[in-house]
Amino acid sequence: MTLTVSQPQWSVTEEIPELVFCNLSHLGLLSVTGEQGRSFIHGQVTTDISSLSADQWMWGAHCDPKGKMLASFRAFSINDALMLMMPKDTLAADLPQLAKYAVFSKADLVDASDSWIILGVAGQDANTWVETQFGEVLEPVTAISNGVIVKDGERYIIVLAAETSDAIIDKLEQPIYASSVWQSIEIKAGYPNIAAVHQGQFVPQMCNLQAVNGISFNKGCYMGQETVARMKYRGGNKRALYILTGTSKNPISLESQLELALEAGFKKTGTIIEYAQSGEQLVLTAVLPNDTTDAAVLRFADDETSSLSIQPLPYALDDE
């Protein structure tokens, strides 16, 4: 079963409809099983996998030995499998990195993306729809007969086994929006969705991972821990994730260059992490110098008519 997008257009300036369904085809699932699967992943990532219960999910990151992120992800369980949800291109690039070390453990790592359908549900009526279909959902992760429901505030990510998803998909009476709609929602949440092109560029704190509880400073050793801990206890982080909104007459990409307005002109700055664009309207997250003020004005280097402004983060942020 595949989700057919019937409403691909979306204006990032619009309010979320009362009920919106999104095809999260941009996300993949890395399945971790085996006798030592969880302990192996625990020793590789920033979050405390050993404390992850069946009804919880966590943000986390996998870093290289220098503490630079190779992937950011949500971790949760489906039955006996630990799942790491991340962009598909990131998964394809990160799986071989994890597999190099998994050969020394009784752990099986598999790209399970094709076995699951991932549906996003948002809007003020999302809770009513979910509870009508699946019953009361109170915990961050709720097991259902053919998958799980990941509750993220007032939003839901429903992970359904592909071969049994027809019964639910056929009940969707609303249009199914493209993944860019969900990305616009997560951008406004200030989430650190790292693409493959960003591998090896940022220490987790540069993408605000600590602000979404994606770093445990009390767990044991993991890949890159020394750098991550030093940045917390000794400082030195000079970058952070920002939310920007604005306009551009050109289609943008993750490689588009940002410029900061100064008195003497414009200066190249920052890196785009994720974006959603509809026509000339767009929202994006970008890693910028953390002394960038809320009043800063930015644009794209290839579009002098473009304009971007910084929006408030929905969480507290500090140098830790």
Rank of each mutant, 00 (worst) to 15 (best):
S248C: 12
L260G: 02
I157Y: 00
E226C: 09
L172E: 01
T164I: 10
R230F: 10
A261E: 15
E163D: 15
V150W: 01
V228Q: 07
I176V: 15
N213D: 14
Q174L: 11
L254D: 01
Y156E: 07
V181S: 09
K219E: 04
A196D: 11
Q257R: 12
T271H: 05
I144P: 01
I158A: 04
A229R: 04
I149Q: 03
K249I: 14
V228W: 05
L254G: 08
D152A: 13
I169W: 07
T269N: 01
K151R: 15
V148K: 02
N250R: 10
E173M: 06
A211V: 04
V181K: 03
L241N: 02
D170W: 04
R239E: 11
I176E: 05
E255G: 08
N218Y: 05
P204V: 03
T227F: 10
E259P: 00
I252E: 08
G220Y: 11
G153W: 14
Q174S: 10
K232H: 12
A229Q: 07
G236T: 09
Q199L: 06
G220K: 10
V212P: 00
F217Q: 03
E263M: 12
A229N: 11
E173N: 08
G214D: 07
I144F: 07
N237M: 14
Y177A: 11
V159G: 01
L241C: 08
P204Y: 09
T245D: 05
I243W: 09
G246C: 10
I273N: 00
G190Y: 02
I273S: 00
P204M: 11
N237I: 15
D170N: 11
G270I: 05
Q225M: 10
A211N: 09
I272C: 02
H198N: 12
G190I: 02
V159C: 14
A178E: 08
G265A: 13
Y233T: 13
V212M: 07
N213P: 01
L241Q: 06
Y242E: 02
P204N: 14
W182D: 01
K171S: 13
E259V: 15
A211R: 03
A167K: 09
F266I: 06
G270L: 09
A264D: 15
T269M: 10
I215R: 03
A162I: 09
Y222Q: 04
Y191D: 01
E186C: 10
Y191C: 02
K171R: 15
I215P: 00
L262V: 13
K249A: 15
K268C: 07
E255N: 10
L258I: 05
S180H: 14
A167T: 13
A162T: 10
N213Q: 14
G153H: 08
I169N: 04
R234H: 13
A178M: 05
H198L: 04
I272D: 00
M223T: 15
G235L: 11
S145D: 15
Y156M: 08
M206W: 04
V181R: 05
Q225R: 06
S253V: 06
I272V: 15
Y156H: 06
Y242D: 00
D170E: 13
I273C: 00
P251L: 12
C207H: 01
D166H: 11
A196T: 01
V148N: 01
Q199S: 13
V181P: 00
I252N: 04
A167Y: 06
K249L: 13
T269K: 03
A240R: 08
E274M: 04
I144K: 01
F202P: 01
F217A: 07
